[in-house]
Amino acid sequence: MRQGKKARSTQRREDSLSPDRIVEASIALLDSSGEKGLTFRALSERLATGPGAIYWHIASKNDLLTAACDAIVARTMSAPVDDATPKATIRALALAMFDAIDAHPWVGSALTRAPGQLPMVRVLERIGQPLRALGVPDEEQWATVSALLSYILGVGGQNAANTHFAREQGLDRTNFLNEVSTVWSQLDPDEYPFTRSVARRMSAHDDRVDFLVGIDLMLDGIGVARGR
């Protein structure tokens, strides 16, 4: 009798274990412990179930990481955009991805390791459609969207890496940037004239604003090319 109750209890736990629950628990683990912290053992403890029940839904850690990444990307890419113009849409989507990678640093590396899978396809499609609406010729669309994606993922990933490094080292952003600004301002004026000239702006720059400047430069370049 006791064994029957235990079997039914186990069955109920496994029945209530859905792919969505597994993915949400994986996201929580990734946010708190990074990719190294995402193990089937840690996940089974969080979900109060056995690893076998998780394997029933997801076959490997790579699949788990991709599914978690896809959940974040799907939410990010489905967010409404107030201004429906193509340029505004691309800016909004790019900034949304920048913020998503900042909030979930593992997303950037997960995307780069799954280039042909659904998470990347979602980003590609959402940015590609307004890019096409800008009038980019068919033969130039792939190169153009690739450049945008490389910038978004590269800068977003670097920003997330900087944030992670600062947290690990216990650095205060303002103090760190002030120190860098001071060092740069003391460089040899003949050898590093440009770096010295921007040193004072280093301590007060906004990463999100800088990111959007880059996006605007690329969009302006697309506009100039179309004008020619």
Rank of each mutant, 00 (worst) to 15 (best):
H57P: 01
S16R: 12
A88L: 08
D83I: 03
L118Q: 08
A67L: 08
V224K: 09
L219Q: 06
M1Q: 15
P86S: 10
L65W: 03
L217M: 15
D20R: 12
F165T: 13
G221E: 14
D210T: 06
R196Y: 08
S60Y: 08
I22D: 01
W106G: 01
R132T: 09
M202L: 11
D216K: 08
I22T: 03
V213I: 08
G157E: 10
V136L: 01
C69Y: 03
P119M: 10
L134A: 03
H104T: 04
S109E: 13
R8L: 15
A88T: 02
A96C: 04
L148F: 08
T195C: 07
V107L: 13
T182R: 09
M1C: 13
A133H: 00
L131M: 14
D20V: 14
T49D: 03
D83Y: 01
Q11A: 14
A67E: 00
L212M: 14
S60K: 10
R208M: 04
R46T: 07
W142Q: 13
I127A: 04
A160C: 06
V121M: 15
A161E: 06
M97K: 03
E14M: 09
A225K: 09
L153Y: 04
R132K: 13
P19T: 11
G170F: 11
R126D: 00
L93I: 13
R75E: 15
I215G: 00
I58K: 02
V183R: 15
N62Y: 06
V23A: 03
E125C: 13
S203K: 11
L153E: 03
D206H: 05
S32C: 08
V123S: 02
V209G: 00
S32F: 09
S109H: 14
R208P: 00
D63L: 12
S197M: 11
A147Y: 03
Q169I: 06
L47S: 05
M1S: 15
F211D: 02
